[in-house]
Nucleic acid binder design. Sequence first.
RNA 1: GGCGACGUGGCCAAGUGGCAAGGCAAGGGUCUGCAAAACCCUGAUCAUGGGUUCAAAUCCCAUCGUCGCCUCCA
Length: 462
Amino acid sequence: MLKVYNTLTRKTEEFSTLKPGQVSMYVCGPTVYAKAHIGHAMSALVFDIIRRYLEYREYKVTHVMNFTDVDDKIIIKANQQGIDPFVLGEMYIHEFEGHLRDFNILPATINPRATREMDQILTMIQGLIDMGFAYPVDGDVYFRVTKDPQYGKLSGRKLDDMQAGSRIDVDYRKEHPMDFALWKAAKPGEPSWPSPWGDGRPGWHIECSAMNLNHLGEQIDIHGGGNDLVFPHHENEIAQSECFTGKTFATYWIHNGMLQLSGEKMSKSIGNLVTIEEFLNHHPADALRMMVLNSGYRSPLSYSEDILAQAEKAIDRLRSALKPALGGSTGASEAVLKTLQTQMHATSAGYVESMDNDFNSAGALSHLFELVRVINQTRADNATNEQLSPAQALLLKLTSALGLSIEKETVKNQAVDGFVDLLIEIRKDLRANKMWALSDKVRDQLAGLGVIRKDGTSWHWE
RNA sequence: GGCGACGUGGCCAAGUGGCAAGGCAAGGGUCUGCAAAACCCUGAUCAUGGGUUCAAAUCCCAUCGUCGCCUCCA
């Protein structure tokens, strides 16, 4: 029984879909005005892990992730660089999609963009005005928060509380300080679309409501994103969508914790960020995935070189179980094989039990490491490759369900491999003849070239 | 000021009422020509102080500390 923590109710609930066996999941993607940082990668990884597990549980998942490709920051940045804002957005979208591939993140079923949903956006705004949930002012259109009795239900805020604490410049054209823009009138030189209220562009929140309606329907199973989006973005999405349709919008609201660098949220505005590009230049993509897997997705995750190094070591540990049988193995005893069998069952069951508990990937990993240990014990007890392979296959299946790739790296160069094999063969002969100095020289220099020997004879690239 | 999350061995971290998973690091051992790998062994009264209970890391209250949101943010 899969259970999911729901931000809306602040409780872990049994997971039940609108349509049996199918999951509709919408995740807020980035606003494309700058290079993405590893906080964005973390969020994408979290929802990739969730999606993969839903698919492991044999749900058919329709996964939608949007790109916000029109917004103040994009326009400002494009103007600074003297290029078309759409070209700028396109560039960053292209780059981000490449990063997703690098991180082995499954592509979303649909990647809608704000600029391609204008009809639906205009229809929704008009509908909200007609029903009294919104009002136009000088070419802008605002949502009337006081008209929605449920407003604040996701973030647990009351309008009165927020009013008291708010000292930000109030736009006096708005009826209530918390009213938010559905449509913004265009300033000269800005990209705009025609509308009944004059040329303009959509507010930040309405695009997601419109894209949901357009691609997933009035009601969806899961809506996700970083927990910094809970208010105002998701709160406003709920208000718009539910006032428009009169139906519950998303059943489960799932939010990931923030990635932190030196004790603070990694963010574009603070400037304490590591871009995905920089990260990938120095680390394997799986290291970040391992960091994410090894902690609760709702907790803040602190990023440091040290923690990253631990994650890389942990992946090596998983890989160690895939090593082949020891040379000359004659077969493990019945008792040893029985233990391996037992562990395989325990791991399969423990894996599902952990992941069923709000995607507890850290717990699931612990079961994988237990399997690793028993596989390695079995190997040390003389098991043959045939005896090891079912357990290794299980390990591979479960790690790949988490999106990790622990299989040997694809061969870089077939021809070079032959020479490495030859050198290792020669080293074996040198050792047989106790020519230690030469054999150590071969070993050390191979290591210097990036060849890691797994044991006496097998090897792989660094 | 308001709302919320969190504080578990040197580090990362699971567990949320019944003798505290797992990974990294460290120390000891097996194996080995040495080394590496692998295997075995070693470690926590769960921020602090009260309370509820036969029983609490786990529930309640208080205190301290860290972080997020309240303005664009994954």
